[in-house]
Amino acid sequence: MNERFPWATILPFEGKVPQIHETAFIAPGARIIGDVTIGPEASVWYNCVLRGDIHRIEVGARSNVQDGSVFHVEGPRPDTEGCPTIIGEDCVIGHMAVVHGCTLEDRAFVGMGAVAMDDCRIGQGAMLGAGALLSPGKQIPPRQIWIGRPAKFLKEQSEAQVEKIRFQTERYCQLAKRHLATLNGAAEA
């Protein structure tokens, strides 16, 4: 049992132990397995799964992985070294998203129920819209919005839209502190 987050499942796998920054928040029901690093003030919300068993997962500072999301990776094969899942700083991952072996640059946004597959890259300040499917190897350039299944370019983001991503990350940092205080208070009662 993890002492800091006794309500979550945090497990080593084949000698790889999740590394969780002291200021990060892990919600009840979350499952974090193997080669996973969670950065400062990042948050992993209720019932998320981050399984770093055949490659690594990194979640950058202040990024939030919202309820029910699943992160996995692609391991090495004869034709590739595999694909880790790398989340930059200040990223927003909406509820029930699937992020598999791809990279999100700083301030990227993945909407609710969206799927980002192997070897994809979502550029800085870019958005994959709710319910969208970004097929393997696709790249969303910085500040673009892509939607649909398969995802296609919609438009460029304005500075005001990118600012909303910054607002969301700050709000989730504060919300995580409130949830942690409530959970710690319940544990002491």
Rank of each mutant, 00 (worst) to 15 (best):
M1K: 11
E3N: 14
R4N: 13
R4W: 07
T9S: 10
L11E: 15
F13R: 10
E14T: 08
V17P: 03
V17I: 15
Q19D: 11
Q19P: 04
I20F: 03
A24M: 06
I26N: 05
P28S: 01
G29I: 00
A30G: 03
R31T: 12
R31P: 00
R31D: 03
I33K: 00
G34S: 08
G34K: 01
I38S: 05
E41A: 00
E41T: 01
Y46Q: 08
Y46W: 11
N47I: 01
C48H: 02
L50R: 00
R51L: 07
G52N: 02
D53T: 02
D53M: 06
H55V: 00
I57R: 01
I57A: 00
E58D: 09
G60Y: 14
S63R: 02
S63I: 00
N64R: 05
V65H: 06
V65I: 15
Q66D: 04
D67Y: 14
D67K: 13
S69A: 14
V73S: 02
E74P: 01
G75Y: 11
G75P: 05
P76K: 15
P78E: 10
D79F: 13
T80G: 14
T80Y: 04
E81R: 10
G82W: 08
G82R: 06
C83A: 15
P84F: 05
I86W: 08
I86Y: 03
E89F: 04
C91Y: 06
V92P: 05
I93H: 04
I93K: 02
G94C: 07
G94T: 13
H95T: 13
M96R: 14
A97M: 13
H100S: 09
H100K: 12
H100M: 09
G101P: 11
C102Q: 07
C102M: 14
E105I: 02
V110T: 13
G113H: 10
V115H: 01
D118R: 09
C120M: 06
Q124T: 15
Q124D: 13
G125H: 08
G129W: 01
A130S: 13
G131E: 06
A132R: 02
S135P: 06
S135K: 10
Q139Y: 03
Q139S: 13
P141M: 03
P141G: 07
P141I: 07
P142Y: 01
Q144P: 10
I145Y: 08
I145H: 01
W146Q: 09
I147G: 07
P150Q: 06
A151P: 04
K152P: 00
K152Y: 01
K155Y: 05
Q157N: 12
V162E: 09
K164E: 12
K164D: 12
I165A: 04
R166A: 15
Q168P: 00
E170P: 02
R171Y: 14
R171G: 06
Q174H: 11
Q174G: 14
H179I: 09
L180V: 05
N184L: 15
G185E: 13
G185T: 11
A186Q: 15
E188K: 14
A189N: 14
